[in-house]
Design a protein around this nucleic acid. Structure first.
Lengths: 230, 230
DNA sequence: CGTGAGGTTGATCGCTTTCAACGGAGGTGG
DNA sequence: CCACCTCCGTTGAAAGCGATCAACCTCACG
């Protein structure tokens, strides 16, 4: 299951990395992933940390009854696999074509002991991930279906660009089932509420995976803002 | 709002600290809190990190409509306020009498740059908190009310003592409303499901705040285990 | 043109919430 | 010592929301 080594693994030429984390050159590898490829699975040995270079991945847990809870999506610049413990506590799949930069967790942590600045960055990454989780908590537990969908769209809009005042358009990079498993809803409920937002003229859906926000203010109202934009 | 300085603040004599974090002596202060006292509020400047010495605190966010989502309970040994950013993203109240050890966040982070071991510990604390959150996610979104309550009781039992095979008794340190705001339920639903567990002879409630687990195996089954015990 | 996957829409069911009333423990004051 | 009050928890009845089950649609692909 563990993708190391992979055929499509190669060493980044020095100085060519867009990564914000400096690691010894001999640990710099890039993995190319196709949509639905697994990066690692729950229970796998957690020997590596990954930085997303391109594409989007999702981190999730599976329940015995087959249901899936997506914990987070990872966008370019995000780190994956920082969790404590010797094994991963969740699985990670690409939901689109993706490139990730892998680093040995051991040598990364060792390097952090030598470079205080790197240690601080790692800590900041974990701390900011925690903050995001707190926002997500409120969303998951306290918000209604339409508030969840509205919040999710706002989060994506934010992810893609600085917010235009009134009009933002972007592609939904994930399928309905991914949105549903993230928001704790069914695909039917996601679909119904996207339709509701469209009927309310808050968004438009020219194609199934293309979203146009027609009324940002109204969308924010519907998302019940204060619980965080996620 | 911010409790520094406080009348009931005093310096721990050197060598008397039960804390696992070493900080400069001039930053060692203990705050005593009564039940429902606030340690800090969402939006307050996040200049300090706290370690719980005694009692239990709850970290929560408020929505504009007045609803509250408790993000986590903090037990002795836990760190509070590690989040990134200049201000706290959540509020923190004591739910019982409590003592916390406060440390300047700045000097703690500075100390971590000098003592790599401390930096590693801080990082581990954040990473392990993240893992707990992931478990909690699955509980909050995917579990039914009775599964949530069962999971919560298991978590408390675990918190208090090594699990007896069949019989564990402990006091519920928090009110029904706190449990409800933590599990994303109403107090009525919490109450109903505690009663259901009692009728099923899985637990007993000799007093409102005293729980006796009569059938640990059954309780674990009802909690649907795999989502993490919380 | 047939096929299959992903998405939408409709009808019904069940669980949790909501609203409301009641009960019990602790505190206060006469 | 007891009546009264208040807070917290419990229980009941009804309503609402999202899940489930099912049918249909749309588009890409062979």
């Amino acid at each position: 299951m563990y993708p190391q080594p992979l055929e499509n693994t190669y060493v980044i030429p020095d100085g060519n990395s867009r990564s914000w984390i400096g690691t010894p050159a001999n640990n710099r590898h890039v993995h190319k992933l196709c949509s639905r490829d697994a990066l690692f699975c729950e229970g796998d040995e957690a020997g590596f940390v990954y930085e997303v270079l391109e594409g989007i991945l999702c981190n999730y847990r599976l329940l015995t009854d087959g249901r899936r809870q997506i914990i987070s999506f990872s966008y370019p610049g995000d780190l994956i696999g920082l969790g404590s413990g010797a094994t991963h506590h969740y699985s990670c799949d690409a939901i689109s074509g993706a490139k990730v930069h892998s680093m040995s967790k051991g040598s990364l942590l060792a390097a952090a002991q030598i470079q205080p600045e790197l240690g601080r960055k790692l800590f900041q990454a974990a701390a900011s991930e925690l903050t995001d989780m707190h926002d997500f908590f409120v969303l998951l537990v306290r918000k209604s279906a339409i508030e969840k969908v509205a919040s999710f769209l706002l989060c994506l809009a934010h992810q893609y660009q600085e917010e235009d005042e009134r009009m933002v358009a972007f592609d939904l990079p994930m399928a309905r089932v991914d949105i549903a498993d993230f928001l704790g809803l069914t695909i039917e409920t996601v679909s119904r509420n996207l339709t509701r937002l469209k009927v309310l003229d808050v968004i438009d859906l020219p194609q199934k995976s293309h979203v146009v926000i027609r009324d940002m203010l109204r969308l924010k109202e519907l998302s019940d803002e204060d619980g965080g934009t996620l």
